[in-house]
């Protein structure tokens, strides 16, 4: 029965080794997608290259369909997967700040790794800024952690909230991805003139 971690006790060395291997695939996929480049990433906000949404959406739908299919055939126990508790205000406010930081800085935390690994100095500086931000949060606003916990709802997924099963949601997301793929192609054609010439 999966996940493996629910039936196997990994040693610390094994856990960190698994992290390295998963990270290898993670970084490889991000760089292949072009996400080591801040200009490729921020292009999504000027509509002339929607690769960020295409890659993220496809990844989410792929994992979602896989998780659902494996649980439907009884190989995977969804209840054993970790779900971060939801705090609407935190996800909304933190998300807005994160989005602002994304377009100002040009990267998100994972893609900054792909950038610095391929020689982008701005990716290295972004990572330094992140370290400063994480340290500042811990030193100046640690109370947010306490507040978050006090106002969080555990295991709040769309199936739990609506009573509609995960399979239907997965189907809806696949359909939406196909529609969005067509829409994004149209957007890229309309805003192609915004693509910088150098």
């Amino acid at each position: 029965m999966l996940p493996l971690a629910s039936t196997t006790e990994f040693t610390l060395g094994a856990e960190l080794g698994i992290a390295l291997v998963c990270g290898l695939g993670f970084g490889f996929a991000l760089e292949r997608a072009g996400f080591g480049s801040a200009r490729k990433l921020t292009a999504v906000f000027y509509f002339y290259d929607m690769a960020v949404v295409k890659v993220m959406f496809t990844a989410i739908v792929t994992a979602m369909v896989g998780l659902f299919a494996l649980s439907a055939v009884g190989v995977l126990d969804l209840a054993e997967l970790y779900v971060e508790p939801t705090n609407y205000a935190a996800q909304l406010g933190g998300g807005l700040l994160f989005g602002a930081g994304f377009i100002v800085g040009g990267y998100c935390p994972g893609t900054a790794m792909a950038a610095l690994a391929t020689g982008r100095k701005d990716g290295m500086v972004f990572a330094l800024g992140m370290l400063g931000g994480v340290l500042a949060y811990a030193e100046l606003t640690p109370g947010i952690d306490v507040w978050y916990k006090a106002h969080a709802t555990p295991e709040l997924t769309l199936p739990a909230l609506t009573g509609i099963g995960m399979g239907w949601w997965a189907l809806a997301f696949v359909a939406f991805l196909l529609f969005a793929a067509w829409g994004m192609g149209a957007l890229e054609r309309s805003f192609g003139h915004w693509r910088p010439q150098r």
């Binding site: 994160f98 930081g101 935390p109 992140m130 400063g132």
Partner: peptide, 9 residues
């Protein structure tokens, strides 16, 4: 890049 990383984090 530094400011953006700080705010995003």
């Amino acid at each position: 890049a530094f400011v953006g990383g700080f705010v995003a984090a």
